[in-house]
């Protein structure tokens, strides 16, 4: 055999897709007629495609919140071990992303937002992604366990399992509560960071968990309001597609009503200072304002401007809360060093 070889065939929306519950056995990696082609499929995937599998944007928020959890925890950790802990959290989050893309390749091919991911675009095969995800999962958990402590390694393993199995395989395609429960996976990193230092789970780390956990539904439902056509096409039961737009908007408001006061708890419990306290109250009020505007906006409005604004603000809300908390901690530590 000679001559140029074909890259891995592309999964397109036209490719015959399997029914949701029969996915693993029948999901085609290649077009139907590609099975007649006996040439070796050589990859055209660059290193950047493998980085894309790690969902770098999601990973950045995970790393950041994990780092804040690690810095907020009382006690000492060697800076090198702290860096290893953060690296493991990052790699573990990336591994979850890769496993998610492995399982969801069929629906990723249908949705505009995800159609260019490496598997549906035909640059990497599903098998490679599965291997990549499993290897990275094992690496991150074992490394964290060996160099930091077993509790944080267990929490990281549970987080990967929760995202890849509980959320991706069980919840995502079966219930509109998918991101409510699945949101726990994204909320664990500060708890892992905290456990890396203290080797324990405390009320403080549970509060850091709860802030992200309760923030996830309004964040994702705001997105799903203006992306509902995509989710509908892929038959993912997101809240707007199942319960309707009005109910989703009301639930967005309810969850925002919950997350706003919970976000103030770090100050009330004494592990965040007054700057964080005032900031979290102001940001909570602003978040509620956005949620109110979304709720009161007319149903069926095509542009979904309030939902888009709320989605953008929700990212800023979480990031800025954790940033202010981190800023306060750094100032406190600097003052301690200066005073010593």
């Amino acid at each position: 055999m000679s001559g140029p070889l074909k890259p891995v065939a592309r999964i397109s929306a036209k490719t015959q897709l399997p029914p949701v519950n029969d996915k693993i056995e029948r999901m085609p990696l290649v077009e139907k007629n590609a099975s007649l082609d006996t040439s070796i499929g050589l990859s055209e995937a660059n290193a950047s495609d493998y980085i894309a599998l790690l969902k770098p944007r999601v990973m950045s928020l995970v790393v950041f919140t994990g780092f804040v959890g690690l810095m907020a925890a009382p006690g000492q950790i060697h800076p090198v071990l702290a860096a290893i802990a953060i690296l493991c959290i990052a790699v573990g989050a990336g591994a979850s992303g890769a496993l998610n893309m492995w399982y969801d390749a069929d629906i990723d091919a249908i949705m505009k937002r995800t159609a260019k991911r490496p598997i549906p675009a035909g640059r990497i095969s599903r098998e490679e992604v599965l291997t990549f995800g499993l290897l990275l999962s094992a690496f991150s958990v074992v490394t964290l366990g060996l160099f930091v402590n077993l509790l944080s390694a267990f929490l990281l393993a549970f987080t990967i399992f929760f995202y890849a199995v509980v959320y991706t395989m069980w919840l995502k395609r079966s219930t509109p509560q998918n991101i409510v429960i699945g949101g726990a996976a994204g909320a664990f990193p500060p708890m892992i960071g905290w456990a890396a230092v203290t080797n324990s789970v405390s009320m403080e780390s549970i509060v850091l968990f709860l802030i992200i956990f309760l923030w996830t539904p309004p964040h994702f439902w705001a997105l799903s309001l203006f992306m509902s056509d995509d989710y509908e096409k892929a038959k993912i039961p997101m809240m707007p597609n199942v319960m309707g737009e009005a109910s989703t908007k009301f639930q967005i408001f309810l969850y925002t009503l919950l997350v706003a006061p919970v976000a103030v708890l770090p100050w009330m419990m004494g592990f965040a200072g007054p700057v964080y306290g005032v900031f979290s109250i102001a940001m909570g009020a602003a978040f509620l304002g956005y949620a109110w505007t979304v709720w009161r906006a007319p149903v069926g409005e095509a542009m979904m401007k309030p939902a888009k604004k709320m989605f953008a603000f929700s990212i800023f809300y979480l990031f800025s809360l954790y940033a202010v908390l981190l800023g306060e901690i750094l100032v406190r530590k600097a003052l301690l060093v200066a005073g010593a």
Partner: peptide, 22 residues
């Protein structure tokens, strides 16, 4: 017979990129 695999430019570049990353 000539049974060697001839890579396209794109495949060669991709392979090099993966090798460096690894």
């Amino acid at each position: 017979s000539n049974d060697r695999v001839t890579l396209t430019d794109k495949q060669r570049k991709a392979q090099r990129s993966r090798s460096i990353a690894l």
